[in-house]
Amino acid sequence: MKVLVCVKQTFDTEAKIELKDGKISDAGINLIINPYDEVAVEGGIQLKEKGIAKEVVVVSAGSDKAMDAIRTALAMGADRGILVKQDTAADEYARACALAEVIKGESPDIVLAGHVAADDGSSQVPTRIAEILGFPHVNVITAVEIAGGKATCTSEADGGTQVTEVSLPAVISSQVSWNEPRYPSMKGIMAAKKKPVSTVDAAAVANKVAIVSVALPPSKQAGIKIEDEPAVVGAKLADWMLNTVKVEVK
């Protein structure tokens, strides 16, 4: 069985966002694998360790910098990488088209991806890939069992937890609580340098959504700050809640 994992390179979640010439500046920003995708990589490697998957292929669409994300996934234990060179301004549609084109050529049994990226927060690309490929898709999974050509997934759902079964091949997108991604070992990092990574150019597809402008949200001003005996500050906080916020007490 072949598992293909889509990873996106994103800013570190601790990064402070600044603008330069009306665009988000990446100066001095530490780049990481999108945390949701990192969980998908770990999930793929675990399927291999369990003997369910034979090969784990990592695919990333983006600039040359995304090679670092691929190398990190290889250091964790993925077998092979594909960098799909694409303008980082590609929208969700163009991104999905580019990835799906490459995925088609690989004919995987399972496509894994994070259910959302920590940067644009769109949560569209895995679903769009599934539609292009004509695969079933299960979103936001926290556990999966693969057996008999089927995937049985536990996922976070609106107002509860859902268990869904789909036939393979399928796209499965991960919630961060699925697993705890491993840190690459020194041995893994050395081995990753020798693992094959191919580079292809993305299919030329026009965006369907245009970014008009980017801005920083209005910064929240600090208000009252008090320090005193618990009986005093507790009473003042309760008073503020009742009279300024006007909360209802149940």
Binding site: K220, A222, G223, I224, K225, I226, E227, D228, P230, A231, V233, G234, A235, K236, L237, A238, D239, W240, M241, L242, T244, V247, V249
Partner: peptide, 25 residues
């Protein structure tokens, strides 16, 4: 967290929350 708070209390939640609850009551 104080930089974004409209009302910030410097204190131990173990001591402050019980007071807030009894005051709200």
């Amino acid at each position: 967290i104080f930089n974004v708070s409209d009302f910030g209390v410097v204190g131990d939640l173990f001591k402050v929350i019980p007071v807030v609850c009894s005051e709200l009551k």
